[in-house]
């Protein structure tokens, strides 16, 4: 995974709560077996509407999405994160993220930064009054800067460390393979196995 330290890019105000992953990427796009090439699928339903924010200059060039509370609810599809990244987003700001979405973001180097709703409202106003305003996100300092606004954000320390270092989860876990093997030896024999198959 690429290291994430700071990012500066155009902010996109998405004044909506409960943006579920079916909106971020509709199910029809989940049939692909690749991990890239999902940029056309991002918000595919909403993008058919000319008024949608990503159909407007300069927001179509945005890389920091500023959304309402409960972003990424619903389906566990990591395709939602892939689609946001493929489109060009590096950061999503929201006052509350769904757990699975936040986890998936952390694995893929998309920063899900939790910003208080009051600050989100200020940033929305700034971005709407001055379209094209850039937002700078500093992961080490855990701050977001937009125009004259500086706001703190929350992210769990472990995810922050992994993003800053660009560390691969599986590689980290495999350092502890001996402990996994010892644990396996302690499991009761009656725990079910899928093989051989019984039907």
């Amino acid at each position: 995974m690429e290291k994430f330290t700071t990012h500066t890019g155009i902010g996109v105000p998405l004044r909506q709560s409960n943006v579920d992953t079916d909106q971020i990427i509709p199910a029809v796009y989940l049939k692909r077996i690749t991990r890239t090439g999902f940029e056309d699928a991002l918000f595919a339903g909403w993008r058919k509407n000319d008024d949608f924010i990503l159909n407007q200059e300069p927001f179509n060039r945005g890389s920091v999405l500023v959304a309402g509370p409960d972003f990424g609810t619903g389906s566990s599809r990591e395709h939602a994160v892939w689609a946001l990244k493929d489109y060009g987003f590096r950061v999503v700001l929201s006052s509350r993220f769904a757990d699975i979405f936040r986890g998936n973001s952390g694995k893929q180097g998309l920063l899900a930064a939790e910003v208080a709703q009051d600050d989100i409202e200020l940033i929305w106003k700034e971005l709407e009054n001055h379209p094209g305003t850039e937002i700078t996100v500093d992961l080490a300092a855990k701050t977001v800067m937009c125009g004259t606004i500086t706001a703190p954000f929350e992210i769990d320390d472990y995810t922050r460390w992994r993003l800053l270092e660009g560390l691969d989860d599986i590689g980290l876990t495999l350092h502890h393979e001996a402990e996994i093997t010892s644990y396996e030896a302690t499991r009761p024999s009656w725990k079910p196995k899928t093989l051989p198959a019984k039907v």
Partner: peptide, 30 residues
């Protein structure tokens, strides 16, 4: 890799949905 994995909690199991990166992690490390 499905959010409705919570279903299995009905048996007193700790069951939850994961994303594809975590699917790969479980495949490689259990």
């Amino acid at each position: 890799g499905d959010s409705h994995t919570s279903t299995h909690g009905a048996f007193g199991a700790l069951a939850f949905g994961i994303g594809t990166s975590e699917v790969e992690h479980v495949m490689a490390t259990q």
